[in-house]
């Protein structure tokens, strides 16, 4: 097929769009930064794209709660376009605020019904404040197409105030049973688990593995020089690649589209 096309969704308060754009470009995709107004007005059609990325930021200031206003807008103003996108087997990636949006639309963790209903949430960190730090992640067995072949241990930064994944017991066990957990924080104690997430959950996918949301920022680790300790890495002792841990997530998405869509 031709070059996969990614729609990077923007709205008031989106602020990780440029680096998410860069990540997909490095992965070989064609990209477009599109304001949600242009999707609502029909100026741009979601169906022209194979990947929808919702970047980090503070959509609408995270007023009321993180991501909720954008989620409502998507749920009510883009209902059929989104349903069609999912039904066509296309990919959706939500990073940080994007993850919060996906959870609040109900696209994650997802349900058997076609209704978009919120079943989990990303609550205020147990530290009760915004925190920016790098965390160790453990990759889980999951159907997620974005993390295929990724390392068992991944190192990425988080930067959020509302990242504590939590849900009712039945939803948590469903997510667990379906192998929908993609990344867990390596340790449960603070600050290794930076927000107090249930089950140390850092990122989940839907049951198909095609919708993926995570709190850490893979687009902030595209090259070795993003690593907070790159000056300590020694060329002789550490296997240092110039590619950062995050890039493979974007590459996998592009490969999946090429192979399947």
């Amino acid at each position: 097929m031709t070059q996969p096309k990614v729609l990077i969704l923007r709205t008031a308060g989106t602020n990780c769009d440029a680096e998410t754009n860069r990540a997909f470009q490095l992965a070989g995709a064609g990209t477009a930064l599109v304001h949600i107004q242009n999707l609502i007005s029909g100026k741009v059609n979601l169906s022209d794209y194979q990947i929808l990325a919702i970047p980090g930021g503070f959509s609408y200031g995270d007023d009321i709660a993180a991501g909720i206003l954008l989620a409502i807008e998507m749920r009510h103003k883009l209902t059929s376009a989104l349903n069609q996108f999912v039904a066509d087997g296309k990919l959706i990636l939500g990073i940080c605020n994007g993850f919060q949006v996906l959870v609040r639309t109900g696209l994650l963790p997802g349900s058997n019904t076609s209704e978009m209903t919120q079943r989990a949430t990303l609550a205020m960190n147990t530290s009760a404040k915004f925190e920016c730090r790098w965390v160790d992640l453990e990759t889980q067995e999951s159907p997620c197409v974005f993390t295929k072949g990724i390392k068992a241990h991944v190192y990425l930064p988080v930067a959020h105030a509302e990242g504590r994944f939590t849900a009712p017991e039945d939803v948590l066990s469903e997510v667990e049973t379906n192998n929908q957990i993609v990344f867990r924080y390596a340790e449960s104690r603070y600050p290794d688990n930076p927000n107090g997430s249930d089950g140390n959950i850092a990122g989940i996918c839907d049951t198909t593995g095609r919708i993926f949301g995570l709190m850490p920022h893979p687009e902030r680790f595209l090259t070795k020089w993003n690593h907070p300790r790159w000056t300590r890495l020694s060329e002789t002792q550490d296997s240092v690649s110039e590619e950062g841990d995050g890039l493979v997530i974007f590459k996998n998405a592009v490969s999946y589209v090429k192979a399947n869509l």
């Binding site: 440029a18 920016c132 907070p228 300790r229």
Partner: peptide, 22 residues
């Protein structure tokens, strides 16, 4: 320092906090 986002825009190569434990 941790309350400030120092990684957004993806361009920071020397952080305000450095060392073995950042």
């Amino acid at each position: 320092i941790r309350q400030y986002d120092h990684g957004v825009q993806g361009g920071v190569v020397i952080n305000p906090l450095v060392g073995a434990k950042n």
